[in-house]
Amino acid sequence: MTLLIENASLIMSVQDNGRFGFMRFGLPESGPMDWRAFNHANRLVDNPPDNACLEIGFTDASLRVEKDALLAVCGAGYQISLKGRKMPMWMSFWAKKGDLLDFEKTPGGNWAYLAASGGICSQVWMGSRSVYAIGGLGRLLQRGDRILIGKSIHRSRWDAGWFIPQENRPAYDIDISAGVVPGPQYEWFTDEAQTAFWQQKFNVTSRSDRMGYRLRGENLTHRTGADLLSQGMVMGEIQVPPDGQPIVMMPDHPTTGGYTSIGTVCRADLSLIAQAQPGISEISFIEINLNDARDKLTKTIEDIDKIEKPQEDVWTQL
């Protein structure tokens, strides 16, 4: 069973949970920008959590369904429609052979994830299907590409209609509050810069991609300098180069860096940053301690398992 890409968005690729164990060789983990939406989408179609999804970003896209399939889309900034009929995200639905699935870009976010029951069966490199185009591990999708879907146990629309209750979805908003654990070079910044970091609102610039989001705000001044002996970096780390403008590391980030990091966005809130829209969203960073960051992650993962099915007559209409 396949999906035919009739129109590819600006950044569109296959992503699974990511590729682990190669950061020591300079290869980042990759994986979804908004890992929470990705996980919810897989959950809705009853896939194991590491199955690959289609990641659609920044502009419109459309796909032709070439065989009946149980699908779900989660994310922000998109209105989806099936055969021209608007559909809600965060819900599983049954698509029939020949149906056109449209992704129309709307305000509210950048990324949407399409999960198909059975999972996407694209090429595996080094234990993962995640595309990392800069490193030569696959490429971004283009019009005319076909995506192969694995065998599904779901055979009819009666398996569709599951949804994620509003309260368990990430709280996407134009005003974003993201928890940050300070360090490792927090003390390298002046008192004024430390205060400004917590008090001001940052914008995302258009120079943002799967490697990192460049933010704009009041300059964060270093006491002596921004350069340090290169060391390893993780996703969510907020690097501040000499120009004082922070960069949040995203899944395709460089694995090492030689500039100071003022803090790290907690994993649970990194999904919110991923959906921050260039020139529109405003980001505030809130200091969070390690225990709270971990508890937030635990709660977030628990929420992914919470799905519901409403009365049948509500969803068979769709």
């Binding site: 682990f20 164990g21 190669f22 950061m23 060391q231 390893g232 970096m233 694995t255």
Partner: peptide, 22 residues
């Protein structure tokens, strides 16, 4: 512990906080 990144004079260790305490 998932993986670690040796650098010039440092070691960055990445782990799953739901499996092991920092």
């Amino acid at each position: 512990v998932r993986e670690w990144v040796p650098a010039y004079s440092s070691m960055l260790v990445i782990f799953d906080p739901l499996l092991v305490e920092i």
